[in-house]
Design a protein around this nucleic acid. Structure first.
Lengths: 217, 217
DNA sequence: GTCTATACCGCGATAGAC
DNA sequence: GTCTATCGCGGTATAGAC
């Protein structure tokens, strides 16, 4: 008796019928594109993109290889979707951090940027993890590396400005400082688990604290 | 005990004949095992181990696939040799740093260890880079990860002791401190070039300086 | 130490039924 | 949305000549 169309019944000619806005998995399989993407990203991160075959992903989902191709045109298209998610997130985060602290000293902007980077990294952990492991093996991967380099350069600019303004130590090349800072931030993907005991606020505070004040007591 | 054929032969007789200690490439090809290994590690680091085929390596060396198998039993045997080099180096470095600073405060030991880690990472950069990218996709890779974890635990112990001795900030979990410290150190493999303008001494000083004193001026 | 030739397998991807 | 079946390619690895 419960008919899905019930709600749309009344108007004379409901030319736009059923169309369930958000598909929910039914019987057993029946995956949507985003679910396939999440599982793929997880597998890619566990085994590496190249070491993961379409069949591995199919087995993980409990379906066959061919079914994957209903959701994505190719293996590389899955990677593309994942990398776009990570890069869009990072772009937005860097822009937002820059905007929110526009008139402050570069030192404060840098600190805000580092904390924002930690938060975005945590929020999109799987996709960012995948991004950070890309080696540039295809035009697609190279394009992702280019976008990433562009983001890194924006961050390096803030570091340089903070040194120029005299708030950061100047006994180390600003370029090196930049590498060390974001090297530490990026290394979080190798061990941090968002559902573990450490909140992203605690983590961001720890990273910023260690970086800016140092380890000494 | 160690029996290397000729070496054990006749004491008193300088019986060590031709045996070109270091083989030099002759006509054109004619590689020795170590050269093949170096080139393989470089390729693996550029493209990723899984994305690199034996044929890629053969083309890079200017020989054919089959010739590779004269030097190594299998592709995985090449990886094994590389990972052993990295792990042996790290093991030795950690042990040496621990030994040299045995009676000093943990804070000093930690600083010495960080600097030693930077130096060994630079000295064996290609092999260590490869090690840090291993995902555990085979029993061999898992064994490497196990050895690496063991080393990481030794380092974490020094950090914990330094916190206990009251020399390190205690507002951050020692385990997290350890991850951040060696995350920064390990991230060097993603950008540092030993033959660039930055010496390994400068680099070690920069890393230790930033980590222990912080970025502030 | 390298070559040619080849075995064998799993990969990404497609066609078409249900 | 998933299935079975299949294609063609490139992967690791081996055999045996030079």
């Amino acid at each position: 008796m419960p008919d899905v169309d019930a709600a749309t019944a009344v108007p004379a000619a409901p030319a736009v019928p059923p169309v369930p806005a958000v598909r929910r998995p039914r019987g057993r399989p029946g995956y949507d594109q985003d679910t396939v993407l999440r599982r793929a990203i997880d597998l890619f991160n566990r085994q590496g993109y190249d070491a993961t075959s379409i069949n591995d992903l199919a087995v993980d989902l409990g379906i066959t290889k061919s079914a994957i191709y209903h959701h994505f045109e190719s293996k590389e298209a899955i990677l593309a979707a994942a990398l776009d998610e990570a890069l869009d997130g990072l772009d937005a985060a860097v822009a937002a951090a820059a905007d929110a602290t526009r008139d402050e000293p570069a030192y404060d902007r840098l600190r805000a940027t580092v904390e924002a980077a930690v938060h975005i990294l945590v929020a999109h952990l799987p996709a960012v993890t995948l991004l950070l492991r890309v080696r540039g093996n295809s035009p697609l991967e190279q394009a992702a590396l280019d976008r990433r380099r562009h983001i890194d350069e924006q961050l390096a600019t803030v570091v340089k400005r903070a040194v120029d303004e005299g708030d950061l130590r100047d006994d180390v090349d600003p370029e090196v400082i930049s590498r060390l800072v974001f090297g530490m931030v990026n290394s979080l993907v190798d061990w941090y688990h968002p559902d573990g005991p450490i909140s992203s606020e605690t983590l961001a505070a720890a990273v910023a604290g260690v970086l800016f004040q140092g380890l000494h007591r």
